[in-house]
């Protein structure tokens, strides 16, 4: 009898605690679900806020970084003397390594018609150092800009670049509009 009593009391206490724990989890979950979204978040760079500090190349958990340079062709002036391709005060306007700004030679310069050249980023080689972006923003139209490529990004719970971005240019955004692209490409990217 005595033993039964003890066990009954213990059982009773345990079920009480269980119930209150369940209520606690329910309360926390309920409060959070009020602010929940069925969508997922992804990380996005705002190219208008970006100050091209170069941390995207170093601080990503991936090496090379998931941040790559993207070319908004409809903003590009197709210049021969490209501030994003050539180092300032370049020796001559050519594809020689001594004239290239990109440390990994990831920008391909292609002749189209006199005097216009097309610049294409080779994503395999790009390390997201933003040197060309800075050059293009300073001397050109700003058509070269950084983007987080979602085919590469692991979508960390907290982006380690965002934590260190000096201009707070990296934010969580709904996964349905993952890119804020310069120029007129916003529509197709969002679909």
């Amino acid at each position: 009898m005595g033993k039964d009593k003890i066990y009954n009391r213990r059982d009773f206490l345990e079920s009480g605690m269980r119930l209150s724990l369940a209520l606690a989890v329910g309360a926390v979950g309920g409060m959070a679900i009020g602010k929940a979204t069925t969508e997922d978040w992804v990380w996005q760079i705002d190219p208008f806020a970006c100050t091209q500090c170069g941390r995207c190349a170093d601080e990503c958990v991936l090496s090379p970084s998931a941040v790559k340079c993207v070319h908004a062709f409809d903003l590009c002036g197709y210049c021969d003397l490209c501030g994003g391709y050539l180092i300032p005060g370049a020796n001559e306007i050519s594809t020689g390594a001594e004239n290239q700004l990109c440390p990994t030679s990831a920008i391909q310069r292609k002749y189209i018609e006199d005097p216009y050249f097309e610049y294409i980023i080779n994503e395999e080689l790009c390390i997201g150092c933003a040197k060309c972006v800075k050059g293009c923003a300073s001397f050109g139209n700003g058509s070269l800009h950084l983007q987080i490529k979602h085919s590469l990004c692991k979508n960390c719970n907290e982006c380690s670049i965002a934590r260190l971005c000096p201009s707070d240019a990296i934010k969580r955004v709904p996964a349905s509009s993952p890119y804020l692209v310069k120029g007129g490409f916003v529509e197709p990217a969002g679909s």
Binding site: I87, G89, N91, G96, A97, E98, P103, T104
Partner: peptide, 26 residues
Amino acid sequence: LLERLEAEPDNEALKVEIRNLDLLAR
């Protein structure tokens, strides 16, 4: 090397040297 090139802009040998070094580094 780049600094040197700035001083001697027409040194073709230097340019070749830079290109080789760049290739190696990459």
